[in-house]
Write a protein that binds this DNA or RNA. Structure first.
Lengths: 364, 364
DNA sequence: ACCCTGTGTGGAAGCGCTTGCAGGCGGCGC
DNA sequence: GCGCCGCCTGCAAGCGCTTCCACACAGGGT
């Protein structure tokens, strides 16, 4: 009886009438124990007699009781929220990432709160308002487009941080070896005999903030050098990590006096955009032009795109675990940063082949 | 002075040392007013003298004060969280949706908490545990795979609900007119002269729970009938809403005694999977086979896919607004449900054309 | 028999806010 | 010139939990 207390507040007025559900106090009363015991019993803490625990659990489940996370958080001092800072939601890569992070966080009882840095105000706004303050226990910085000063401002909040996509000294993180991935891609092309290999890269304006494309650029240069090829700046164009940007980039490349015979795009979406433009221009891919991407986007297999595969969801899961571990070990003096490299793999499909001049066999 | 109170708890021990930031009390002391006044001043409530407000705001900003949302929520009785129930994160459609919802919710000061129903335990687990209880102010049900009883269980929690993707009596919601979209797609194909038109649809096992594919199926039948064509069950296969499923479906269709000359896939991803299989089988798209999808996925333009366009991000924004409005108007007796239809549009690209037998002109 | 330990439990003080209520103060109407 | 009404402001009671502490009690050593 008495599920709804007539006492309590005392306001009669227009108090928003959400269907009142049981509080810990209701459970305590029904189970004839104190609220402290209910709290301990339900959370599996020690020092509760088995019989008591059993009774409390039974009563709680009968009453459909669930603890109010808001109250737990306030009292417990832990927000049970992981912040995920990404340039944007809604893009394949970040959606997959979110999905991985969310899966791990949920199991551990954490919520995931996304923050985007490419919306209105961009990363400036983010750094100025630091919107995660008092809202998260830890932060995952994914491809954070911050310079050193901005990064320091974020770190100065004292919120534990892990990073994804690039490594920062003093910050745990995971990333694929972007230079190696690029070498793999370009190496595949040089191995096929290509000598004019273009790069469709990142965002034109802030080359120093977003390290992924610059690492890939370095890998591209390395692979060129390893193959004895010279680097031609005219073959490097930004692609903005979208299909549209990849298409624009390809237009530029095609307009050059001597167009490339192969293109390495820093994402599959850009590669797909580039292929489209090439085909529209009457080129046959891969006979006239080879294209390779990075990611292995869900649909890359279905457009036959040769690419460098990375497991984005897996990275999301792993970086979430890393943050969780980090939150546990706050007190321990950590001797060494954890900088974990994730593997990539070449997946050869049907958009790469030998360059046109030596095309003796039809295709790979 | 005295930013960090030496008094308070009294525990000397290993209290987790997060960098202590200012509380409302610190601000009140510094501004020489009560915490109540600080609260009112900072939230723009009336009945605060302009001079007082100014001073409080100045002090707060100097101290880098931000209110702790956890405490506000507990005290205010509103969680400031919108739940978004989706089958999964990480798929294009739901990522876009999330992105739209998040944008609107953020502006209104709400967080978005995703719940997935196709993870471990699926929707059964969701309905059994009702994990959103005490965590959200309202719920967006996107393509919720619930039967009437499950839906009732969710509604019985008293949490305000809006739906997306299909309409339920008594529940505000938005959706595209899926039957109309399907008619548009199939009408395009019949208009081109096709008479054997296949449908690659939804999930094989629960046809009654997820209304989107069944609505599209009805639209498909309607369009067939309108064109005077008979319905052939052999031409309807499930595709699971993934590129992989679309590919499998196409395999089945191709194995039939008389394969279709056109395919309507209920998503672009399935369409792309289907096209791949058709081309592998030596068919030319669109000469030998026309394929049309639904969505206008980001990359559809770049694979030349003809499709029915819908604005998913816009739907996310709109459904979030709707929920927000709904939360405002709880008390008002709402005469009529809000059931809002969102537009779709045919986008003709290069995967549809006249059927092979009457292919006089090369392509559209 | 005694003290000491360990286990189980309840009381109560918060966590950092919001908000109902009461009270002080000045200005206006009559 | 007095009362009344508003406007500001502060007090204090929560919101529903967690956790520190005190305490009661049972059992083992010496």
């Amino acid at each position: 009886m008495l599920l709804v207390e007539p006492v309590s507040g005392g306001t009669g007025g227009g108090r928003r009438c959400t269907s009142v559900s049981a509080t810990i106090e209701d459970v305590a009363r029904a189970a004839q124990v104190s609220v402290a015991t209910v709290s301990r019993a339900l959370r599996g803490l020690p020092n509760v007699a088995p019989s008591t625990r059993e009774r409390v659990v039974a009563v709680a489940s009968r009453m459909d009781y669930v603890a109010d996370p808001t109250a737990s958080r306030l009292a417990g001092g832990r927000r049970m929220v992981l912040g995920l800072v990404v340039p944007m939601l809604g893009q394949w890569y970040y959606a997959k990432l979110f999905s991985g992070v969310e899966a791990v966080a949920t199991v551990a009882g954490y919520d995931v709160l996304p923050f985007t840095t490419s919306g209105p105000g961009g990363s400036e706004r983010f750094v100025r308002t630091l919107p995660f303050r008092k809202r998260v226990d830890g932060l995952i910085l994914a491809d954070a487009p911050f310079d050193a000063q901005q990064f320091a401002a974020v770190a100065a909040t004292g919120v534990p941080i892990v990073s994804l996509g690039s490594f920062t000294p003093g910050v745990w993180g995971i990333a694929v070896d972007n230079a190696a991935a690029a070498r793999l891609a370009v190496g595949h092309l040089t191995g096929l005999g290509h000598t004019r290999i273009a790069l469709i890269g990142g965002i034109p304006d802030d080359p120093f903030r977003f390290s992924v494309p610059v690492d890939r650029f370095h890998g591209y240069q390395d692979a060129l050098e390893a193959a004895g090829l010279s680097y031609d700046p005219a073959l490097v164009v930004p692609g903005n990590f979208s299909a549209e940007g990849g298409a624009e980039a390809m237009h530029k490349l095609l307009a050059a006096p001597t167009p490339p015979t192969a293109v390495f795009a820093c994402s599959d979406e850009m590669a797909i955009g580039a292929i489209q433009v090439a085909r529209d221009a009457g080129l046959d891919v891969p006979r006239d032009l080879s294209v390779i991407g990075i990611d292995d986007h869900d649909i890359s297999a279905y457009v036959g795109l040769t690419t460098i595969r990375q497991d984005v969801t897996g990275q999301g899961e792993r970086v979430a675990q890393l943050l969780l571990e980090h939150l546990e070990d706050r007190d321990d003096v950590q001797v060494e940063d954890v900088h974990e490299a994730h593997p990539t793999r070449l997946v050869v499909r049907r958009t790469t082949g030998p360059p046109p001049d030596r095309a003796s066999h039809p295709r790979v």
